[in-house]
Simulated assay, not measured.
Amino acid sequence: MNESPGVVDLLGVLAYAELSAYERMTEDAATLAPSLADRAALSELAVTEYAHFRLLRDRLGELGADPDAAMAPFVAALDAWHAQTRPADWLQALVKTYVGDGIALDFYREAARHLDPSIAKLVDEVLVDEERSQFAVERVRAGIEAEPTAAGRLALWARRLVGEALSQGQQVASARPELALLLMESLGEGQTDLSRLFASLTEAHNKRMTAMGL
């Protein structure tokens, strides 16, 4: 296997993140969606997440890595994140899909910036979230229009999501030095910690909040 452990870590954490997203969206579609149209739309997004998981799993195999072993170090952290941020209703589920998942995607995208072009292209492909973003933004805006008082509680929920996501990201980076090194390299020379990265992630989070009307 020619790729560095950091690359395998990145593809491993992404693969488990996509698998987890598929499972969570499927559950949310079945239990929280207020209409059959919403249930179908979220289920379709879940299928896309599973397709992304398969791409990552296959690439890990091509690199000579065991996909299960590559994902294993991240199972506890990502499962804890989902357990701590289980949505109570449909709008919370959509905010989590857009805001919580979005900041995680930004984190992984940053780590891939200076990788081999073929790996970077794969990461970009699996992190495309335009369809998911449009779906979540439209539904959340409609929900707030129908129930203006929902905006306050959803804003609090989003702040909790970003706090939990940044905490999990720091734990993952600290536990996997090779993955942390990819992040350091993406920051450029002179950067010795992740503070500026997390500031950038927070800025992107604020833009998503604005898009939802929060």
Rank of each mutant, 00 (worst) to 15 (best):
Q171P: 00
T97M: 12
E189G: 13
R109G: 10
H52L: 02
A65F: 06
E110Y: 03
L181D: 13
T85P: 07
E125C: 05
L32S: 04
G64E: 08
G102P: 01
D79Q: 07
D28A: 05
G6Q: 03
S4D: 06
L197H: 12
A15W: 01
S186T: 04
I103H: 07
A180W: 04
D79R: 07
L42F: 10
D106G: 13
A175C: 02
A41W: 06
H82Q: 10
S133C: 10
T149F: 06
L122E: 00
M25L: 14
V162F: 04
V123A: 02
P148I: 05
D116W: 02
E138I: 11
V8N: 05
F53L: 12
Q92I: 05
L194M: 05
E203N: 11
R54W: 09
E44C: 12
V99Y: 03
V126M: 00
A30S: 14
W157P: 02
H82T: 09
I144V: 13
T31L: 12
R57Y: 07
A33K: 09
H52W: 01
E145V: 06
L10H: 01
P177K: 04
W157Q: 05
G169F: 05
D124H: 14
Q84Y: 10
A30I: 05
L122T: 00
F53C: 07
P117W: 07
T48D: 09
D101K: 07
M1P: 11
I103S: 08
L201Q: 12
S174Y: 02
G213C: 09
A40G: 12
T149W: 06
A155C: 06
L181Y: 08
A111K: 00
E130L: 08
G152C: 00
Q170V: 13
S167N: 10
A80K: 14
V13W: 09
V95T: 02
R139K: 15
